[in-house]
Nucleic acid binder design. Structure first.
Lengths: 247, 247
DNA sequence: CCTTGTGGGATTGTTCAACGATCCCTTAGC
DNA sequence: GCTAAGGGATCGTTGAACAATCCCACAAGG
């Protein structure tokens, strides 16, 4: 940091540099949270599959943290619905039920359609052009990933597309709700054999929605999105129910 | 338990007896959760006002639980947004900002209007008549509380009214979202001098909305509700901002 | 064969004491 | 008046300990 600058100048400097995103890596340094970050990554990438039991002793030993600290991390992830805590039995990677899956889509329909309707748009909402730009960028990233057959990138691009839609609302609580719901959805995909299959057909529909938004017809985009979600829910729910029944 | 009944019979017996609600009192007995229940009551009743610091040592000593257990309870309440955790500084009863208040109403508008629009109604949704009946009952309870000048009852009746509206969706996640948001709203009222003032004028509008629903015109009810929320937001937000500025 | 007890072994639930790390406030210095 | 160093309080994390609970296997009884 520069030596003799005044307080206000220094603060402005930090803002301009766009370091706000990096602060998360510094200030938020609690060990339990860092452990939770690690475990969250492992879960969402499928290393710990749904239903797997996370033993306090083995995980704690492997990560070199005490049981108390590990339990705090478990508690964090339990509240994110990624882990499930059964009393006196330990924590398990959550197994999403078919009812949960339906509920997830119900929430998505409510939130995403509200976002396109521009309901309750708040002061944090991005400029209209800026927000739609982010949506378009997510679609484009998906198209590039599909062309390169980078399926993992395609799935993250798809999630980002829907997150960008919700971001139109400019509501921290809504953003967090959506983040949690999409994280749950990842658990579902880890149970399926062939997750990519579910993303690819919807890429063209993402494009259509983004173009409709760019054209300024939000009402039409909302209708397309709701149809999209209903189709997606039906297909995913059916396949998931069958997959659950099998094993 | 009965001696020689077969497994299936016993299960049916338990279901019929309606003991499912009591199980919560038995199974969910973790010390941390019980501590959290106690603290949650104290916070929502205003014993711990917003901004108050909850020392690990003093609270833990008073309740006779160890610091580790207490910290788990703190984390539970932090996730409910009732407490705020600042690293190395302890936990504080959350002070809702004016921006938070606006965001809370933004979420409410999205969720409550979606509920009346019947969007994404799921399998847990109550029968149409049953759900509206609960809404009507909440309004009625509010009217009786107002007549008896039981202001505390009036406020809970009002919250129950909105919760009943959201319950129309039949979505566990949406219900939980609403519960959290309304709990946050309670924190706001504890900062105000005269909370009742904000509920009373809206009682007649609750009645109007319930009657419109009973008449079967959900679209009109949605418009009324959105206007209600917008008015409520404006009034509450203004008064709260001033109250915060004062002290 | 099915159900009902009864152990043992493993894991979690909870508490405690201790030490290092961090923050806030005060004091000293320029 | 502002910056820098020090002290005290509190939090963060650990390791160990013991009780409570669950799971599994095995034996006893109908």
């Amino acid at each position: 940091m520069a030596g003799g600058v005044a307080k206000n100048d220094r603060r402005r400097l930090a803002e301009v540099s766009g370091l706000a995103s990096d602060r998360a890596l510094l200030g938020r340094a609690s060990t339990a949270e860092r452990v939770a970050d690690i475990l969250r990554d492992r879960i969402t990438e499928g290393f710990f599959p749904p239903g797997a039991r996370l033993s306090e002793e083995s995980i704690g030993g492997a990560l070199g943290v005490s049981r108390n600290t590990l339990r705090e991390a478990f508690r964090l992830l339990t509240h994110e619905r990624l882990l499930e805590h059964r009393l006196n039995r330990g924590v398990f990677v959550r197994v999403v039920t078919v009812e949960d899956l339906d509920d997830i889509f119900r929430v998505r329909m409510i939130v995403e359609s509200a976002a396109l309707r521009g309901l309750g748009q708040g002061p944090y909402a991005p400029e209209a052009g800026e927000g739609i730009e982010a949506i378009d960028a997510a679609v484009q990233a998906g198209e590039e990933a599909a062309a390169a057959r980078a399926w993992a990138d395609l799935s993250t691009a798809n999630l980002r597309f829907h997150q960008a839609i919700v971001a139109l609302v400019g509501s921290p609580r809504t953003d967090e709700l959506m983040r949690g719901v999409l994280a749950e959805l990842r658990l579902v995909f880890h149970v399926m054999d062939d997750p990519q299959r579910f993303y690819a057909p919807y890429l063209v529909r993402n494009r259509q929605i983004a173009d409709t938004l760019l054209a300024g017809d939000a009402a039409a985009a909302e209708r397309l999105l709701l149809a999209y979600l209903e189709d997606s829910r039906g297909q995913l729910s059916g396949a998931y129910a069958q997959r659950i029944k099998e094993g």
